[in-house]
């Protein structure tokens, strides 16, 4: 992944309509914003605030050749490989989650060379997005040196600091073509409010050329203006808004629902025992089969949804 030239970055921003305008569309329309071959940054971390509804829409739209990047990648990475939307994932850690062990799909695809898992340190991923958000081509950092990680990534270079003479590692900016970010609420213009853990989402949003927001609910602009300090992503950085309740299911959305653990256990079981065929059956049942997002949620099931919701809301208990 090469650094986007600054003139191109500025020109792409200049061409965007940054007015305060309504931008609510459907999941299917949002998928059309993503082009084959794009670099798509995925918000959230591991099983938290993962934009599953948009990934679901990209799989159904049969996108190809996407490079995905994320802080830490969970089983949405499996789904990206097996569905064929991506064969290159840049991330710091890739498996469903520690409690589920090593991802069988990650192993199956990377060990045979069918897909690439480009491993950067967690802070390196963060500083790469931050450089992109800052409009500079790289950030210096003091980790990753001396390790073998640096030899397997694209584009990291050591330099001597011109001020102190110290050794530093320069990590290149990421300016994703599209960022997919799920939030608890936003207005029709894309002013997004995020509760709880922010992960790398603010930097991803400001680094990306286009941000597709999915949201648990769309609120009025008046409500946003009553608490502007809660707004984490400004409307002018946002290309599209999609209302997708339970848009992270079966992953977590802070304060709204915890992970759907039974579903996650079921997925882990299928991928471990039935391998790629099992994951393809999972895709047929949950990705290609449903008529729409509501039917997807129906198939995931009301009982699990209520259980996850009860646990999710408990974060506000004393």
């Amino acid at each position: 992944m090469t650094v986007v030239p600054y003139a191109q970055l500025r020109e792409r921003t200049r061409q965007r309509d940054c007015s305060l305008h309504e931008k609510v569309i459907s999941l299917e329309e949002a998928a059309n914003i993503v082009n084959d071959g794009d670099h798509v940054a995925v918000g959230g971390c591991t099983v938290s605030r993962t934009p599953i509804a948009m990934i679901w829409a990209l799989v159904r739209a049969r996108k190809q050749g996407l490079t995905l990047s994320r802080s830490i990648t969970s089983n949405e990475g499996d789904i990206a490989y097996v569905s064929g939307i991506s064969d290159h994932i840049m991330t710091s850690w890739f498996s469903q989650g520690i409690v589920w062990g090593i991802s069988k799909m990650m192993r199956a695809y990377t060990e045979t060379g069918r897909a690439r898992f480009e491993e950067w340190s967690h802070m390196a991923m963060g500083l790469r997005y931050r450089a992109g958000a800052m409009g500079v081509p790289f950030m210096p950092m003091r980790a990753m040196m001396g390790s073998d990680i640096v030899g397997l990534v694209d584009n990291a270079q050591e330099m001597e600091c011109p001020f102190t003479g110290e050794r530093l590692l320069l990590v290149p900016a990421l300016n994703p073509d599209v960022a997919l970010i799920h939030v608890q609420r936003c207005d029709r213009y894309g002013n997004a409010q995020i509760d709880g853990l922010q992960f790398m989402d603010l930097d991803i949003a400001m680094a990306a050329n286009k941000v597709i927001l999915t949201t648990e609910r769309i609120v009025s602009n008046e409500q946003i203006r009553r608490a502007p300090d809660h707004t984490k992503i400004p409307f002018f950085a946002v290309e599209a808004v999609v209302e997708a309740p339970y848009g992270c299911a079966p992953h977590e959305c802070y304060g709204t629902y915890e992970p759907f653990f039974e579903h996650m256990d079921m997925y882990a079981q299928i991928s471990a025992t039935k391998g790629e065929e099992g994951v393809k059956e999972y895709l047929d049942e949950f990705y290609y089969g449903p008529k729409n997002w509501t039917e997807y949620l129906e198939r995931v099931g009301l009982q699990e949804m209520l259980d996850a919701t009860r646990r999710g809301r408990s974060v506000y208990d004393d």
Binding site: G97, H122, M141, A143, Q198, F199, E252, E258
Partner: peptide, 27 residues
């Protein structure tokens, strides 16, 4: 908590910050 990135990790925390900023505390 089942991971270091879920809401259960935030119970009675003093502060929540972006991932990059908590890692920068190391640096």
């Amino acid at each position: 908590p089942p991971s270091t990135n879920e809401q259960r990790c935030t119970r009675r925390a003093n502060m929540l910050v972006p991932i990059t900023d908590v890692l920068l505390l190391l640096q």
